[in-house]
Simulated assay, not measured.
Amino acid sequence: MPIDKYTLHRDSQTEKWRLEKEGSDRAKRVFENKDEAVKGLRDAVGPSGGSVRIRKVDNTIQEERTYPRSKDPKGSKG
Rank of each mutant, 00 (worst) to 15 (best):
D4K: 08
A27C: 01
E64C: 12
D25Y: 09
V30E: 05
G78H: 12
K56H: 12
T14D: 12
V38S: 06
A44C: 03
E64R: 15
D11H: 04
L41K: 01
Y67E: 04
S12W: 10
P2G: 05
E64F: 10
K71P: 04
S70C: 10
E15L: 12
G23Y: 12
A37L: 01
A44P: 05
H9D: 11
G75P: 02
R42Y: 07
P2F: 02
S12D: 15
I61D: 12
G40N: 05
I3F: 01
V52E: 01
L8C: 00
R55N: 13
N33R: 08
V52N: 00
D58Y: 10
Y67L: 09
L19T: 05
R26K: 15
Y67A: 03
R53P: 00
P47C: 07
K56N: 14
K28E: 14
D4Q: 10
F31N: 03
K56F: 08
R55Q: 15
S70T: 11
N59T: 15
V45W: 01
S51N: 04
V38L: 09
T14I: 10
A44E: 04
V30F: 05
K28Q: 14
K77P: 08
K28P: 05
Y67G: 00
K34I: 09
D43G: 08
Y67W: 11
R18S: 09
E15V: 07
K71R: 15
E63A: 13
A44R: 01
Q13V: 12
P47I: 08
Q62K: 15
D11R: 04
N33V: 06
T7E: 10
S48T: 14
T66E: 07
K56T: 07
